[in-house]
Amino acid sequence: MEQTASDSPPPSAAGRYGTEAVFTADFTSTRQWVAGRSWAYPNGGPVNPDDNKLDHLVADPAYCRSGTFRATRRPDGRWNTGLLTTEGSEEAFEVRTGDVLEARVRLPRETGAWPAIWTWRDGDQEIDVFEYHPDNPDLLELSNHVRGGSLYHRDPAIGPGAWIDLRVEFGGGSVVWWVNGGQVFADGQGVGRDWHAYLIVNLSVCAGRYHPPPDPGTSEMSYEVQRLVVLRPLARPEAVDEGDG
Rank of each mutant, 00 (worst) to 15 (best):
S6T: 10
S6L: 09
S12T: 15
G18N: 02
G18Y: 01
E20W: 09
E20V: 13
E20H: 11
T24C: 10
T30S: 15
V34L: 08
G36E: 03
R37G: 00
W39R: 15
P42K: 10
G44Y: 07
N48W: 12
P49I: 02
D50R: 14
N52G: 08
D60P: 00
S66Y: 08
G67R: 05
G67Y: 04
F69L: 06
A71M: 02
T72F: 04
P75L: 05
G77C: 03
T81D: 04
L83Y: 05
E87H: 11
E87Y: 13
E90Y: 12
T97E: 00
V100P: 06
A103C: 04
A103R: 07
R104P: 05
V105F: 03
T111K: 10
W118M: 06
T119K: 13
I127P: 09
V129L: 14
H133I: 12
D135T: 10
P137F: 08
L142M: 03
N144S: 00
V146S: 02
V146R: 05
R154I: 11
G161S: 03
A162Y: 01
A162L: 01
I164K: 04
D165K: 12
D165V: 11
L166P: 13
V168C: 08
F170P: 05
F170C: 06
G173A: 15
S174V: 14
S174M: 14
W177G: 09
G181C: 13
Q183W: 09
F185G: 07
A186W: 07
D187W: 01
G188H: 09
G188R: 08
G190R: 07
I200E: 12
I200Q: 11
N202I: 08
C206I: 00
G208Y: 07
T218C: 12
V230G: 10
A235L: 06
R236S: 13
E238N: 10
